[in-house]
Amino acid sequence: MSLKRKDLLGMADLSVEEIQLILQTADSFKEVSGRDIKKVPTLRGKTVVNLFFEPSTRTRTSFELAAKRLSADVINFAASTSSVVKGETLLDTASNIEAMQADFIVLRHPSPGAPGILARSLRASVVNAGDGSHEHPTQALLDLFTLREKKREFKGLCLVIVGDIAHSRVARSNISALVKLGAEVRVAGPPTMMPRHIEELGVRVFFNLDEALKGADVIMMLRLQIERQGIALFPSIREYSRIYGLTPERLRLAERDVLVMHPGPINRGVEISPEVADSGASVILDQVTNGVAIRMAVLYLLSAGR
C-alpha cells in the first residue's frame, strides 16, 4: 500500500486505505517529534513553498515545522488575493514559484478548487492547506489522528460538528472522511449556516444543539467567522453564543468520556466557553501537536513517484 498520487487536494478523493496509510505513517513521525533531535534527513535538498493567499499563522507554522523536521528547505510566500485578482493569475504566480525548482507547493487560497488548478498544471506536488469553503484535508487528517489516539475505532463513533457548516472547509473534509470511515456524523447549527442537501452526504442535521449532543462521543466546534461579510447569518454574537455555544452544562448532555475538538483559533466565550476549552475533555492542543506529524506524513508520502 502506498499513496499513488502527486497531490493532496481533498478528503473526498482519498480511499479508506489511503487515509489509514497516512495515519499509520504519521505514527512514525509522531515518534520522531518526540525525540530530542526532532529532525530526519528524509527530504534533504527538497524545497517546500508555503504559498498563502490568506493569513494563517498556525497552519503555515505547522507545515513549516513539518518540512523542516524532514530537512527540506522552506520558503514562505504570502500573497494577497486582491493583487492577484487584478493582475497576475494564480497559475502565473505558481508557475513562477515552480520555476525556482519547488518540489512541494502548500497552497492556502480563499477560492474553492484553486489547488486543483495548480495540481493539473505543475510538476510539483500540491498540498491543499485550505481552499475557501471546500476542503482542508490536513486538518481533517490530524483530527482523525487525534480521534484514533483517543478512541481507537471510527466505526460507530458518534460525532457532532457544530457551527457554520455552510462556510466550513473543516466540516466538509471531516464529513467526507468520517462518513467513509463508518462514524455517525451529526451537524448542528442554525439553518442559515446549513448548506442545502448536506444530508445527502450521509449526515444528520440538527438545528437544536442540545438534541444533537445526546449520546455524542466527540464534539467538533467550528470557529465562528465573526468578520464574515454580507447579510448576517445570525442576529448577534450574544444570541449565537447562547443557542450554539458549548458550555459545561451542554457538555453533560454528551457521553461521559466525550472529546471536544476545535480547529482553532478559538473564540473564547463565543462558540466555546473557557471552562470547556480548558477542561479535561478538550483535546485542542493534541490536535495542534498531531498536525505536525500528519503534515510530515503527507509530505513524505507525496515525495515518491515524481
Partner: peptide, 15 residues
C-alpha cells in the same frame, strides 16, 4: 527516513 534512495523510488516504503 535515513535511506539515500528515496528519490529513486516510485512509491515510498511503509514506515
Amino acid at each position: 527516513l535515513y535511506r539515500d534512495d528515496l528519490d529513486a523510488r516510485k512509491e515510498q516504503p511503509t514506515l
